[in-house]
């Protein structure tokens, strides 16, 4: 590139330099990453077949693990995704009795990193993804947090396992209200750049 610059006349040289600089910036920008990976437990099954399980509920402790890799500050939030927002999808009904409109809020989760950086350290009920629950950050532009609750620094799970890995526990308590059958829903974890 330098020999080329030498041969260019002086009026063109700044323009060429600017162009090169912008290509460098483009290259630098395109190397930014936001990557969310579920490393464990992406398909979970709850079966309720005894009175005790209905009354006491069922817990799957640390059933899922989510890994975050980001070169920018980030937010992490979670919500449910179903055909009818806020209600489980009915796949098969076993009975005419009861109500098959089961709200997603019968499920609660607890998501925390080994460094206890999650803003939701205890079980909380899930809502539709339209009104997500933030594990890290908020809707707005958050302050840079390097340690403790809300840590949103760039990093990756290999280098920052205490802040960029989250273990998810699930608790489901259906009670006696709902109709027997098979239901499904998706729990959607989303990482986004913190703006």
């Amino acid at each position: 590139m330098l020999p080329l610059l030498i041969f260019l006349n002086s009026s063109m040289r700044p323009l060429v330099l600017t162009t090169i600089l912008q290509f460098v910036i483009i290259f630098w920008c395109s190397s930014q990453t936001l990557d969310l990976t579920i490393t464990k437990g992406s398909d979970l099954v709850f079966t309720f077949n005894s009175i005790r399980s209905y009354t006491a509920g069922a817990i799957l402790g640390n059933a899922s693990e989510v890994a975050v890799e980001s070169t920018v500050e980030w937010d992490l939030y979670v919500g449910t995704q179903t055909t009818t927002p806020g209600f489980w999808d009915l796949i098969q009904s076993y009975s005419d009795a009861g109500d098959d409109n089961i709200p997603v809020s019968i499920m609660s989760i607890r998501a925390n990193s080994p460094g206890l950086t999650s803003q939701e350290g205890t079980f909380f009920t899930l809502q539709d993804i339209a009104t997500p629950t933030f594990l890290i950050g908020t809707n707005g532009n958050d302050a840079t947090t390097g340690t403790g609750i809300g840590t949103n620094d760039p990093g990756n799970p290999a280098a920052d396992p205490f802040t960029h890995k989250f273990r998810i526990s699930y608790r489901l308590t259906p009670g006696f209200t709902y109709s027997p059958g098979i239901y499904t829903m998706e729990v959607l974890f989303t990482i986004a750049e913190d703006l």
Partner: peptide
């Protein structure tokens, strides 16, 4: 943004 889904199945058996 990057999304990942966890698929949850719930079977309620009448007891």
């Amino acid at each position: 943004t990057d999304n990942e889904n966890v698929y949850i199945s719930l079977e309620l058996q009448g007891v």
